[in-house]
Computed example of a mutant assay.
Amino acid sequence: MRVLLLLLVSLTVISQEDLSHYKKAMTFKSSWTLYKNAPDNYASYKAFSKSIEDLEASEIKAAAYAYSILGAYFQNKVEYGAITHQKLSDLSQEIGDDKWQGFCRVEQFGDECSVCEGSSEKKRACKKCNGTKTCRNGECRKGQIISLEKIDGKFEEVSTDCSICEASGFCQACGGSGVYKIPCNICRGFGYLLNKMKVREKFKDGLVDMDALVANHILEGFSQDQLAKGKIKRGDRWYTLEEINKMDKSSQLKAERSMLEQRKREQNQRTGELRAKRDKKFNSLENDSILEPEKAKKIIENDFSDEADPVKINLLNIYLKQANLIIKATESENKGLELEAIKLLKEAQKIRDHEVLRSRIRKLKLENLGL
């Protein structure tokens, strides 16, 4: 079942040229999810590695290359890892970030090869000189070939440079070392053996960062598609220009309604305060019309001239009439007309009895009797 899914992902990756950025990102996520759950599976490794090539130059591509390299190590294909690491190195220079290069550097996962002891090579006796280090030409003597030639009737030794060793006297195949080197067949010429436990630990260490990059890649892909459609981002969502205009208009209407409601509340508050103040004045007239009649008269005439409540109008008339009588009584009293003052006060008392009125009438009567 897993192999089938991997094949489907591979086919999807191959044909994704016509997909949107978001769908491409989702396809990459699918290949990453399968690979993440089966990093040592060759099919998931290949499908994931193939999906990387469709990514744009960015950190997620660098991270994907790094994880692809780890996958190559899982498959014991260090040479594949080396090729991909070169791609990663070129990409790191392009994007200016080499973080992921160090993440997957092969040296950190290797244990020294016990066969070549880290040299990555094996030594064998040279097949050309059988380890003698000397030129394989039997006639060569330290780079020279000695021959007898008849000169002026006499035989003399003549030396010429050996063409095989070029007069060096050494074996050209091994350079005079007597041995030749071959890549170690155990570590494949790398000098170390991969420790897959170290690779697996490293794989786990970077998962949080890689998953975050994949999630961000999906968001960026979605954003690119929305921008291509001419949409505008507001908050966490994307809208068309028409939707933006409707939203702005709605917000404006809402703000206007809110402002009107606020003004209404403020107006009601002011009205309530004025009403409370007016009621306070009205309630004080009950006593002020007797104790401070001039003040009460002024308040009634100035502040309650527009009163519409019939009950209050009736009371205001009573308070005003009573205040006028008391004012006249006070004027008569000041003129020494005690009897007239008493008469006016009694009229005020008939309208509304009050202890102050009774006290004043009693006092005036006593004063009138000379007591």
Rank of each mutant, 00 (worst) to 15 (best):
P183A: 05
D225L: 00
E243H: 06
F155I: 11
K202Y: 05
Y239I: 00
K142P: 14
G235C: 03
G143E: 02
R234Y: 15
R237I: 12
S168V: 02
G176E: 03
C171L: 01
F190N: 05
E220C: 04
I145L: 10
K142Y: 14
L227H: 06
E157T: 10
S177R: 05
N195K: 03
N185C: 09
L227A: 07
S223W: 02
C174E: 02
E242K: 09
S168L: 01
I145N: 00
G191K: 03
E156N: 11
I232N: 02
L148A: 10
R234N: 12
D152L: 10
F170C: 08
K233I: 05
L227K: 06
S163V: 09
S168T: 12
C187M: 03
K196W: 07
G206H: 02
D225N: 04
M210E: 04
S163A: 13
A228F: 14
V199A: 00
D205N: 10
I186R: 13
G206N: 01
N216Q: 15
E166W: 11
G206M: 01
G153Q: 02
T160F: 13
V199Y: 00
C184G: 06
E220R: 05
C187I: 03
C171T: 01
V158K: 10
F222K: 07
D225V: 00
K181Q: 15
D161P: 15
S177E: 09
L207H: 11
P183V: 03
R234L: 15
D205E: 14
M197D: 15
I151N: 10
R234Q: 11
A228S: 14
L207T: 13
K202R: 05
D152P: 13
K204C: 11
K198T: 06
S223H: 03
F203H: 01
K202G: 09
S223V: 01
G153R: 00
N185E: 13
N216K: 11
G176H: 04
D211P: 06
G175T: 07
C187E: 01
L241G: 09
D161M: 07
D205C: 06
A228I: 12
R188S: 14
G230P: 09
K229L: 13
K233Y: 06
E157F: 12
D205A: 11
I182K: 11
L207N: 11
K202W: 03
Q226L: 03
M197H: 12
L219H: 11
V208Q: 08
G189Y: 01
N195R: 02
K142G: 14
C162R: 00
S168I: 01
M197G: 13
S147P: 14
